[in-house]
Design a protein around this nucleic acid. Structure first.
Lengths: 146, 146
DNA sequence: CATCTAATATCAGGTCCTTGATATGTCAAA
DNA sequence: TTTGACATATCAAGGACCTGATATTAGATG
Protein backbone atom coordinates (compact mmCIF):
# COMPACT_ATOMS: atom_id res chain seq x y z
CA UNK A 1 0.00 0.00 0.00
CA UNK A 2 0.93 3.65 -0.42
CA UNK A 3 1.98 6.09 2.24
CA UNK A 4 3.07 9.70 2.58
CA UNK A 5 6.76 8.78 2.24
CA UNK A 6 6.33 7.50 -1.34
CA UNK A 7 8.74 9.31 -3.62
CA UNK A 8 7.11 11.31 -6.41
CA UNK A 9 6.98 9.35 -9.69
CA UNK A 10 9.90 10.06 -12.01
CA UNK A 11 8.93 11.33 -15.45
CA UNK A 12 11.07 9.03 -17.53
CA UNK A 13 9.36 10.12 -20.72
CA UNK A 14 10.49 13.67 -20.16
CA UNK A 15 14.04 12.64 -19.26
CA UNK A 16 14.24 10.43 -22.31
CA UNK A 17 13.02 13.19 -24.56
CA UNK A 18 15.43 15.69 -23.11
CA UNK A 19 18.47 13.44 -23.46
CA UNK A 20 17.54 12.42 -26.99
CA UNK A 21 16.85 16.03 -27.95
CA UNK A 22 20.21 17.18 -26.61
CA UNK A 23 21.98 14.44 -28.54
CA UNK A 24 20.14 15.16 -31.76
CA UNK A 25 20.72 18.89 -31.49
CA UNK A 26 24.40 18.37 -30.91
CA UNK A 27 24.71 16.09 -33.93
CA UNK A 28 22.80 18.54 -36.11
CA UNK A 29 25.04 21.39 -35.03
CA UNK A 30 28.17 19.39 -35.75
CA UNK A 31 26.98 18.25 -39.17
CA UNK A 32 25.48 21.51 -40.38
CA UNK A 33 28.83 22.86 -41.63
CA UNK A 34 29.09 19.72 -43.75
CA UNK A 35 25.63 20.26 -45.19
CA UNK A 36 24.30 17.09 -43.60
CA UNK A 37 21.40 16.43 -41.26
CA UNK A 38 21.38 13.72 -38.60
CA UNK A 39 19.04 11.43 -40.56
CA UNK A 40 21.16 11.90 -43.67
CA UNK A 41 24.27 10.88 -41.74
CA UNK A 42 22.52 7.80 -40.38
CA UNK A 43 21.48 6.79 -43.88
CA UNK A 44 24.92 7.36 -45.39
CA UNK A 45 26.34 5.25 -42.60
CA UNK A 46 23.85 2.44 -43.19
CA UNK A 47 24.31 2.46 -46.97
CA UNK A 48 28.06 2.31 -46.46
CA UNK A 49 27.69 -0.66 -44.13
CA UNK A 50 25.28 -2.54 -46.40
CA UNK A 51 26.16 -1.70 -50.00
CA UNK A 52 23.20 -1.94 -52.35
CA UNK A 53 20.66 -1.91 -49.53
CA UNK A 54 17.05 -1.23 -50.50
CA UNK A 55 14.85 1.62 -49.37
CA UNK A 56 12.57 -0.74 -47.45
CA UNK A 57 15.50 -2.29 -45.64
CA UNK A 58 16.88 1.10 -44.67
CA UNK A 59 13.48 2.18 -43.38
CA UNK A 60 13.23 -0.86 -41.12
CA UNK A 61 16.73 -0.28 -39.76
CA UNK A 62 15.93 3.34 -38.93
CA UNK A 63 12.46 2.66 -37.48
CA UNK A 64 10.78 4.93 -40.01
CA UNK A 65 8.28 4.33 -42.78
CA UNK A 66 9.49 3.61 -46.33
CA UNK A 67 7.95 6.93 -47.35
CA UNK A 68 10.05 8.82 -44.85
CA UNK A 69 13.20 7.04 -45.92
CA UNK A 70 12.40 7.76 -49.52
CA UNK A 71 12.42 11.47 -48.80
CA UNK A 72 15.84 11.31 -47.19
CA UNK A 73 17.23 9.22 -50.04
CA UNK A 74 15.80 11.60 -52.62
CA UNK A 75 17.60 14.52 -50.98
CA UNK A 76 20.88 12.61 -50.78
CA UNK A 77 20.57 11.62 -54.42
CA UNK A 78 19.77 15.20 -55.41
CA UNK A 79 22.92 16.29 -53.56
CA UNK A 80 25.03 13.70 -55.35
CA UNK A 81 25.99 11.71 -52.25
CA UNK A 82 24.13 8.58 -53.25
CA UNK A 83 22.90 6.85 -56.37
CA UNK A 84 20.03 4.43 -56.92
CA UNK A 85 20.22 1.68 -59.48
CA UNK A 86 17.91 -1.12 -60.51
CA UNK A 87 18.43 -4.46 -58.81
CA UNK A 88 19.91 -6.97 -61.30
CA UNK A 89 17.59 -9.86 -60.37
CA UNK A 90 14.58 -8.14 -58.88
CA UNK A 91 12.37 -5.88 -60.96
CA UNK A 92 11.13 -3.68 -58.17
CA UNK A 93 13.95 -3.18 -55.68
CA UNK A 94 16.31 -0.23 -56.13
CA UNK A 95 19.83 -0.62 -54.83
CA UNK A 96 21.34 2.32 -52.96
CA UNK A 97 25.05 3.02 -53.07
CA UNK A 98 27.28 5.87 -51.99
CA UNK A 99 29.03 8.01 -54.56
CA UNK A 100 32.66 9.00 -54.06
CA UNK A 101 31.36 12.30 -52.75
CA UNK A 102 29.07 10.46 -50.38
CA UNK A 103 31.89 8.38 -48.97
CA UNK A 104 33.94 11.49 -48.50
CA UNK A 105 31.17 13.32 -46.64
CA UNK A 106 30.53 10.28 -44.47
CA UNK A 107 34.18 10.10 -43.50
CA UNK A 108 34.17 13.72 -42.36
CA UNK A 109 30.89 13.40 -40.51
CA UNK A 110 31.86 10.21 -38.73
CA UNK A 111 34.62 11.94 -36.81
CA UNK A 112 32.25 14.54 -35.41
CA UNK A 113 29.59 12.01 -34.51
CA UNK A 114 32.11 9.79 -32.75
CA UNK A 115 33.19 12.75 -30.64
CA UNK A 116 29.63 13.31 -29.53
CA UNK A 117 29.08 9.60 -28.84
CA UNK A 118 32.18 9.90 -26.69
CA UNK A 119 30.66 12.71 -24.67
CA UNK A 120 27.63 10.54 -24.12
CA UNK A 121 29.69 7.57 -22.94
CA UNK A 122 31.61 9.82 -20.63
CA UNK A 123 28.43 11.28 -19.18
CA UNK A 124 27.07 7.81 -18.47
CA UNK A 125 30.31 6.63 -16.91
CA UNK A 126 32.07 3.35 -17.51
CA UNK A 127 30.80 1.78 -14.30
CA UNK A 128 27.16 2.41 -15.25
CA UNK A 129 27.43 1.79 -18.97
CA UNK A 130 26.19 -1.78 -19.11
CA UNK A 131 23.31 -1.24 -16.71
CA UNK A 132 22.27 1.95 -18.44
CA UNK A 133 22.32 0.32 -21.85
CA UNK A 134 20.25 -2.59 -20.58
CA UNK A 135 17.71 -0.29 -19.00
CA UNK A 136 17.33 1.67 -22.24
CA UNK A 137 16.87 -1.55 -24.18
CA UNK A 138 14.27 -2.75 -21.67
CA UNK A 139 12.38 0.53 -22.09
CA UNK A 140 12.31 0.16 -25.84
CA UNK A 141 11.26 -3.47 -25.65
CA UNK A 142 8.56 -2.84 -23.06
CA UNK A 143 7.02 -0.11 -25.22
CA UNK A 144 7.31 -1.94 -28.52
CA UNK A 145 4.20 -4.01 -29.18
CA UNK A 146 5.05 -7.58 -30.01
CA UNK B 1 46.18 1.25 -22.26
CA UNK B 2 43.95 -0.70 -24.60
CA UNK B 3 43.96 -4.42 -25.17
CA UNK B 4 42.10 -7.07 -27.12
CA UNK B 5 39.69 -7.68 -24.23
CA UNK B 6 38.21 -4.16 -24.43
CA UNK B 7 34.45 -4.40 -24.81
CA UNK B 8 33.05 -2.87 -27.97
CA UNK B 9 31.81 0.70 -27.47
CA UNK B 10 28.10 0.91 -26.68
CA UNK B 11 26.07 3.03 -29.10
CA UNK B 12 24.17 5.08 -26.57
CA UNK B 13 22.86 7.39 -29.26
CA UNK B 14 21.14 4.52 -30.96
CA UNK B 15 19.71 3.13 -27.71
CA UNK B 16 18.46 6.55 -26.73
CA UNK B 17 16.81 7.03 -30.09
CA UNK B 18 15.19 3.62 -29.99
CA UNK B 19 13.77 4.06 -26.49
CA UNK B 20 12.50 7.54 -27.22
CA UNK B 21 11.00 6.42 -30.52
CA UNK B 22 9.18 3.52 -28.88
CA UNK B 23 7.79 5.84 -26.22
CA UNK B 24 6.68 8.44 -28.72
CA UNK B 25 5.07 5.88 -31.00
CA UNK B 26 3.18 4.36 -28.09
CA UNK B 27 1.88 7.75 -27.01
CA UNK B 28 0.85 8.65 -30.54
CA UNK B 29 -1.03 5.37 -30.91
CA UNK B 30 -2.84 5.89 -27.61
CA UNK B 31 -3.82 9.48 -28.41
CA UNK B 32 -4.81 9.00 -32.05
CA UNK B 33 -8.37 7.90 -31.16
CA UNK B 34 -8.71 11.18 -29.26
CA UNK B 35 -7.52 13.17 -32.25
CA UNK B 36 -4.41 14.35 -30.41
CA UNK B 37 -0.70 14.10 -31.22
CA UNK B 38 2.01 13.74 -28.59
CA UNK B 39 3.19 17.36 -28.93
CA UNK B 40 -0.40 18.56 -28.70
CA UNK B 41 -0.87 16.62 -25.48
CA UNK B 42 2.32 18.06 -24.04
CA UNK B 43 1.16 21.57 -24.86
CA UNK B 44 -2.32 21.07 -23.43
CA UNK B 45 -0.70 19.76 -20.29
CA UNK B 46 1.65 22.73 -20.02
CA UNK B 47 -1.09 25.29 -20.69
CA UNK B 48 -3.23 23.63 -18.05
CA UNK B 49 -0.38 23.80 -15.55
CA UNK B 50 0.48 27.43 -16.31
CA UNK B 51 -2.72 29.23 -17.26
CA UNK B 52 -2.14 32.17 -19.60
CA UNK B 53 1.34 31.04 -20.55
CA UNK B 54 2.89 32.69 -23.62
CA UNK B 55 4.04 31.01 -26.80
CA UNK B 56 7.67 31.83 -26.07
CA UNK B 57 7.43 30.33 -22.60
CA UNK B 58 5.86 27.15 -23.92
CA UNK B 59 8.56 26.83 -26.56
CA UNK B 60 11.31 27.04 -23.95
CA UNK B 61 9.62 24.46 -21.77
CA UNK B 62 9.34 22.04 -24.68
CA UNK B 63 12.84 22.67 -26.05
CA UNK B 64 11.52 23.80 -29.41
CA UNK B 65 11.64 27.08 -31.29
CA UNK B 66 8.82 29.61 -30.91
CA UNK B 67 7.98 28.98 -34.56
CA UNK B 68 7.46 25.27 -33.95
CA UNK B 69 5.33 25.94 -30.89
CA UNK B 70 3.29 28.42 -32.84
CA UNK B 71 2.34 25.73 -35.32
CA UNK B 72 1.14 23.39 -32.59
CA UNK B 73 -0.83 26.18 -30.91
CA UNK B 74 -2.43 27.18 -34.20
CA UNK B 75 -3.67 23.63 -34.73
CA UNK B 76 -5.04 23.41 -31.20
CA UNK B 77 -6.80 26.73 -31.60
CA UNK B 78 -8.22 25.66 -34.95
CA UNK B 79 -9.57 22.53 -33.25
CA UNK B 80 -11.16 24.58 -30.46
CA UNK B 81 -9.07 23.13 -27.63
CA UNK B 82 -7.29 26.35 -26.81
CA UNK B 83 -7.81 30.08 -27.16
CA UNK B 84 -5.34 32.94 -27.40
CA UNK B 85 -6.08 36.33 -25.92
CA UNK B 86 -4.13 39.56 -25.65
CA UNK B 87 -2.15 40.05 -22.47
CA UNK B 88 -3.80 42.76 -20.33
CA UNK B 89 -0.58 44.64 -19.50
CA UNK B 90 1.73 43.65 -22.32
CA UNK B 91 1.02 44.69 -25.89
CA UNK B 92 2.83 41.84 -27.60
CA UNK B 93 2.35 38.71 -25.52
CA UNK B 94 -0.61 36.45 -26.25
CA UNK B 95 -1.99 34.43 -23.35
CA UNK B 96 -2.89 30.81 -24.02
CA UNK B 97 -5.72 29.13 -22.16
CA UNK B 98 -7.58 25.85 -22.51
CA UNK B 99 -11.20 25.84 -23.57
CA UNK B 100 -13.67 23.57 -21.80
CA UNK B 101 -13.20 21.17 -24.69
CA UNK B 102 -9.45 21.35 -24.26
CA UNK B 103 -9.66 20.51 -20.58
CA UNK B 104 -11.92 17.60 -21.38
CA UNK B 105 -9.55 16.22 -24.02
CA UNK B 106 -6.59 16.65 -21.69
CA UNK B 107 -8.34 14.69 -18.97
CA UNK B 108 -8.96 11.77 -21.30
CA UNK B 109 -5.46 11.82 -22.72
CA UNK B 110 -3.77 12.02 -19.35
CA UNK B 111 -5.05 8.60 -18.34
CA UNK B 112 -3.54 6.96 -21.40
CA UNK B 113 -0.23 8.75 -21.05
CA UNK B 114 0.03 7.83 -17.38
CA UNK B 115 -0.44 4.19 -18.30
CA UNK B 116 2.45 4.38 -20.72
CA UNK B 117 4.63 6.22 -18.22
CA UNK B 118 3.84 3.34 -15.90
CA UNK B 119 5.11 0.80 -18.41
CA UNK B 120 8.29 2.81 -18.66
CA UNK B 121 8.79 2.90 -14.89
CA UNK B 122 8.14 -0.80 -14.69
CA UNK B 123 10.67 -1.51 -17.45
CA UNK B 124 13.31 0.50 -15.65
CA UNK B 125 12.59 -1.16 -12.32
CA UNK B 126 12.27 0.51 -8.95
CA UNK B 127 15.75 -0.43 -7.83
CA UNK B 128 17.33 1.25 -10.86
CA UNK B 129 15.01 4.21 -11.16
CA UNK B 130 17.07 6.84 -9.41
CA UNK B 131 20.35 5.87 -11.05
CA UNK B 132 18.73 5.66 -14.46
CA UNK B 133 17.12 9.07 -14.08
CA UNK B 134 20.40 10.61 -13.00
CA UNK B 135 22.26 9.06 -15.91
CA UNK B 136 19.70 10.42 -18.38
CA UNK B 137 19.97 13.86 -16.83
CA UNK B 138 23.77 13.70 -17.01
CA UNK B 139 23.54 12.81 -20.70
CA UNK B 140 21.31 15.77 -21.43
CA UNK B 141 23.50 18.12 -19.41
CA UNK B 142 26.73 16.90 -20.96
CA UNK B 143 25.35 17.46 -24.46
CA UNK B 144 23.73 20.80 -23.78
CA UNK B 145 26.15 23.63 -24.45
CA UNK B 146 26.40 25.97 -21.49
C1' DC C 1 13.72 62.04 -24.48
C1' DA C 2 16.07 59.18 -27.88
C1' DT C 3 18.26 55.04 -28.71
C1' DC C 4 19.67 50.60 -28.17
C1' DT C 5 18.88 45.89 -26.65
C1' DA C 6 16.11 42.11 -25.69
C1' DA C 7 11.81 39.59 -25.90
C1' DT C 8 7.84 38.32 -28.47
C1' DA C 9 5.20 37.02 -32.41
C1' DT C 10 5.08 35.67 -37.01
C1' DC C 11 6.13 34.81 -42.20
C1' DA C 12 8.68 31.86 -45.48
C1' DG C 13 11.11 27.84 -46.97
C1' DG C 14 12.95 23.33 -46.12
C1' DT C 15 13.59 18.47 -43.81
C1' DC C 16 11.74 14.55 -41.66
C1' DC C 17 8.18 12.10 -40.09
C1' DT C 18 3.30 10.35 -40.16
C1' DT C 19 -1.21 7.93 -42.23
C1' DG C 20 -3.62 6.50 -46.23
C1' DA C 21 -3.81 5.02 -50.88
C1' DT C 22 -1.98 2.99 -55.11
C1' DA C 23 0.79 0.46 -58.51
C1' DT C 24 4.03 -3.02 -59.50
C1' DG C 25 6.82 -7.08 -58.79
C1' DT C 26 7.71 -11.84 -56.48
C1' DC C 27 6.45 -16.10 -54.96
C1' DA C 28 3.74 -19.86 -53.28
C1' DA C 29 -0.27 -22.39 -53.14
C1' DA C 30 -4.69 -23.74 -54.99
C1' DT D 1 -1.67 -21.47 -64.51
C1' DT D 2 -4.18 -18.39 -62.19
C1' DT D 3 -5.00 -16.52 -57.79
C1' DG D 4 -3.79 -14.42 -53.75
C1' DA D 5 -0.69 -12.85 -50.20
C1' DC D 6 3.19 -10.18 -49.44
C1' DA D 7 7.10 -6.92 -50.43
C1' DT D 8 8.53 -2.81 -52.61
C1' DA D 9 8.21 1.73 -54.38
C1' DT D 10 5.83 5.88 -54.67
C1' DC D 11 2.10 9.78 -54.67
C1' DA D 12 -0.52 12.94 -51.64
C1' DA D 13 -1.68 15.53 -47.58
C1' DG D 14 -0.66 16.90 -43.06
C1' DG D 15 2.05 17.61 -38.45
C1' DA D 16 6.20 19.03 -36.08
C1' DC D 17 10.52 20.56 -36.25
C1' DC D 18 14.39 23.57 -38.14
C1' DT D 19 17.00 28.12 -39.93
C1' DG D 20 16.65 32.71 -41.40
C1' DA D 21 14.33 37.03 -41.62
C1' DT D 22 11.09 40.60 -40.10
C1' DA D 23 7.93 43.47 -37.24
C1' DT D 24 6.48 45.15 -32.91
C1' DT D 25 6.72 45.96 -28.03
C1' DA D 26 9.14 46.66 -23.43
C1' DG D 27 12.54 48.12 -20.80
C1' DA D 28 17.14 49.84 -19.90
C1' DT D 29 20.68 53.06 -20.90
C1' DG D 30 22.70 57.05 -23.02
Amino acid sequence: MSNAADPPPIQFGYLLKRAQHAFRTRIDDALRPLGLTAPQYAVLSAVDAIAGVSNAELARAAFVTPQAMQGVLANLERDGLLKRTAHPDHGRILRNELTAEGRQALGQARLHVQDIEGLLSQAVGQENAALFAEALARCADALTPA
